[in-house]
């Protein structure tokens, strides 16, 4: 049921995106232009959370502590979650491919736990679930540091409002 809600939100986001798209055609550069780079990023949508706020905190190699830019991002996430009355989130921890499989699962979990701890410390009172995919779900696929740094991440997703 948690997934269903998330799915619903995503579909709602897509529908809004489509609507915006259709509107944009009619109104030219007018109102739709205000959205700027995000026809998919209507306020309050998952798309906005992912693309405008940013859902991923990055980590240094083998590190699990949230750095200052990560904390800044989490504060933005927190403000958005509060604004839209989000009561449950899930944090997915990930590791880069330069580690062994089991350890990376534990490492990703520790990253997710770090995010949970910080979100709680700045006042998020909703439910925070954590999960780790280790190195099993990279988003950046090259074999150098520019990609590995993108893959060492913890992703916040909205579970329910």
């Amino acid at each position: 049921m948690r997934l269903n809600l998330a799915k619903y939100l995503m579909i709602a986001g897509m529908a809004l995106g489509l609507a915006a798209c259709a509107t944009k055609g009619e109104l030219g550069q007018d109102a739709a232009g205000v959205v700027g780079n995000g026809i998919n990023a209507q306020p309050g949508t998952l798309a906005e959370f992912q693309q405008v706020i940013g859902d991923s905190v990055l980590f240094e190699t083998n590190q699990t502590e949230v750095n200052e830019s990560g904390k800044a991002l989490l504060r933005k996430q927190y403000a958005w979650l509060v604004q839209y009355n989000v009561t449950a989130i899930q944090i997915e921890g990930h590791a880069d491919e330069r580690g062994t499989r089991q350890y990376n699962i534990a490492l990703g979990a520790r990253r997710a736990a770090s995010i949970k701890k910080y979100m709680t410390s700045i006042g998020f009172t909703g439910t925070i679930g954590t999960l780790s995919y280790g190195k099993e779900r990279p988003i950046s696929l090259c074999d150098n540091i520019s990609c590995w740094s993108q893959n060492r991440r913890a992703v916040t997703s909205v579970v329910s409002k």
Binding site: A106, A109, R110, A113, K116, K117, S132
Partner: peptide, 9 residues
């Protein structure tokens, strides 16, 4: 096996 509990396994 390993069980994860927060930051610890």
């Amino acid at each position: 096996m390993s069980l994860q509990n927060g930051a610890n396994a």
